[in-house]
Design a protein around this nucleic acid. Structure first.
Length: 530
RNA sequence: GGCGCGUUCGUCUAGUGGUCUAGGACGCUGGCCUCUCACGCCGGUAACAGGGGUUCGACUCCCCUACGCGCUACCA
């Protein structure tokens, strides 16, 4: 069986409403979305909520918000509807029931009146003998009479598939090539529960047909499910979609599937912890509750909260299991839509690498135009309470100057909070204890030089970076000392820190008054120390 | 247990029988630049899971083994 050219591409992503958007799910959705966009097809969002129980609306919102933020837009779905609405499986019960009836009538399914313990006993017996379990179909009702007999016995039924027990199921997987499974290895799967509700395999096949899905692009764990779904489809006389099974996204440094539940374990992985800590630091400063339930690098919200760029995440995820060639790494949205192919998706699992994600994000951030950077960064300063609202042109200019000076030091928008000293009053600057001692308290000669420099500075009015640099060089030349004697003491005085961007840019941004105030204050604080 | 899928540097990958003494990227690392940090530049480190075939020749094809993962639910 070879894939035929489909005139219209319709793909779907079918999340169950779990309350969060998993990064692995995003990749699956991305591949679907790219495929649809490339072929001018439709990307459909369908909510797989057949096991319901929870509040679907609440649990769905973070997922849709996540996709919206990432810019993965859908053409049909729960909120916007479409020609095949509703897009909630829980609201399509009638359709599933008529499919079940059809299967029952055609003899591809049967009512099974076994009690749970009876069925389980058979299975356990098979397991004990270490052989493949095949249901005896002892409680299969083959006629109305059987049904009445079982029911008078007080039994209730589930509907099971009457799977073939010989021959093979063969199909083509776009990524993996020809597939072949023995029908005998399949179970008589339940498609309708005792309470009348239907199960995934049935609903999925029925909806894929109803929605006219042309390509099912989904995670590899569904590959072994495919034969039973093909059986359902064929029994119903439906046109089958083409299949493409994606490798899963693995944990950093392991081949286990990435899971939200194991945050504690991941935090023991160095690279993962570095990312988490970085994010947590930002979250704390903006007062975002950093609980692993809502704030965790496996969940998309994490990245949004700390100031990632959606395009960077998509670019990284694209490369997780797919490549164009041996060197192209940069893909704009347009480029990925143009170049993506299912055929070049890898077969083996790819593990999630926080360091590489960070590297991609940094690159995207650095080359972002200033105005966009400004808009990204402002909310962080606001949330951290560093700005007076409304934001004036004057503060915008200052923020821009800080962004410009910090340059590649800002990888996530939230990193702007590393430069709070530019948005604080002079008397509120706190000193990094170690640097303060090293550069001021314990450095007597340097401190004396700073006093001199401070007095000299009082006579200077041009505090532009260029002039500050020229002036300091002239001063040092006169004093006949090297730059190292002064620069560090000035930096710690002005920012409280031993590291940061260029000193002369710092001085220019702060301006004369602040510089003088801060040096005075540092000098007093340092001399008061033992 | 059965069935299925997978296995190239630490990680993401290129590679479809000779161009592979295996290429790129992230990481790590030596040096340069330098007021610190970062950036940048130059260099380095490091891989075809193992064993059998097929072939003049195998990372590439076949088989076996090992390992990993998945399915085998009235989960999706």
């Amino acid at each position: 069986m070879t894939p035929t050219k489909q005139p219209k591409v319709r793909v779907r992503f079918a999340p169950s409403p779990t309350g969060y958007l998993h990064i692995g799910g995003v990749r699956t959705a991305l591949f679907n979305w790219l495929f649809a966009r490339q072929h001018g097809g439709k990307f459909i969002l369908r909510v797989d909520d057949t096991d319901q129980a929870r509040n679907v609306t609440t649990a769905l919102k973070p997922i849709m918000d996540g996709f919206k933020w990432l810019g993965l837009d859908w053409d049909e779905g729960p909120d916007i509807g479409g020609p095949h609405a509703p897009y909630f499986q829980s609201k399509r019960l009638d359709i599933y029931h008529s499919a079940v009836d059809k299967l029952l009538k055609s003899g591809h399914a049967y009512k099974d009146y076994s009690r749970a313990d009876e069925f389980a006993a058979e299975r356990q017996a098979a397991e004990k003998e270490k052989c493949q379990f095949t249901y005896t179909r002892t409680w299969m009702a083959e006629s109305k009479a059987d049904e009445r007999r079982f029911e008078s016995d007080g039994r209730d039924y589930v509907v099971r598939l009457k799977m073939p027990r010989e021959g093979k199921c063969e199909f083509h997987d776009i990524i993996r090539g020809p597939m072949s499974f023995e029908w005998a290895g399949e179970q008589d799967h339940v498609i309708q529960r005792q309470d009348g509700s239907c199960l995934y395999h049935l609903t999925s096949v029925v909806d894929d047909f109803e929605f006219e899905i042309s390509h099912v692009i989904r995670a590899i764990e569904h590959l072994p499910n495919t034969p039973r779904q093909i059986f359902i489809g064929q029994s119903l006389g439906l046109d089958l979609p083409l299949f493409a099974h994606l490798p899963f996204v693995a944990e950093p440094g392991s081949s286990n599937k990435l899971s939200k539940r194991k945050l504690d374990k991941y935090l023991k992985h160095r690279d993962f912890k570095v990312l988490y800590d970085h994010g947590e630091k930002i979250a704390q400063q903006i007062g975002f509750p950093a609980s692993p339930e809502t704030f965790n690098p496996v969940i998309v919200d994490f990245y949004r909260e700390i100031g990632f760029l959606p395009d960077a995440i998509l670019n990284y995820l694209l490369l997780l299991g797919w490549s164009l060639d041996d060197r192209t790494e940069d893909f704009s949205r347009e480029a990925m839509i143009r170049d993506f192919t299912l055929e070049r998706i890898n077969k083996s699992p790819a593990s999630f690498d926080p360091q590489k994600l960070t590297a991609v994000q940094s690159r995207y951030m650095w080359r972002l135009p200033m105005d966009e950077k400004l808009e990204m960064v402002l909310p962080f300063l606001e949330k951290a309470g560093m700005l007076q609202l409304p934001v004036t042109d004057e503060t915008r200019i200052r923020v821009k100057a800080v962004i410009e000076a910090a340059n590649e030091r800002i990888s996530f928008a939230g990193d702007i909070l590393d430069y709070q000293e530019f948005f604080q009053a002079d008397e509120n600057i706190s000193y990094n204890e170690k640097d303060f001692h090293k550069r001021l308290v314990d450095a007597h000669a340097q401190r004396e030089l700073l006093v001199k420099y401070r007095s000299a500075l009082a006579g200077v009015s041009d505090f532009s970076a260029g002039n500050m640099e020229a002036y300091m060089h002239a001063f040092l030349e006169q004093e006949e000392v090297g730059m190292g004697m002064l620069v560090h003491a000035v930096r710690v005085s002005l920012t409280g820190k031993g590291v940061g961007f260029g000193l002369f840019e710092i001085m220019a941004i702060l301006g004369k008054d602040s510089c003088m105030n801060r040096i005075d204050r540092a000098l007093i604080a340092a001399s008061g120390q033992p």
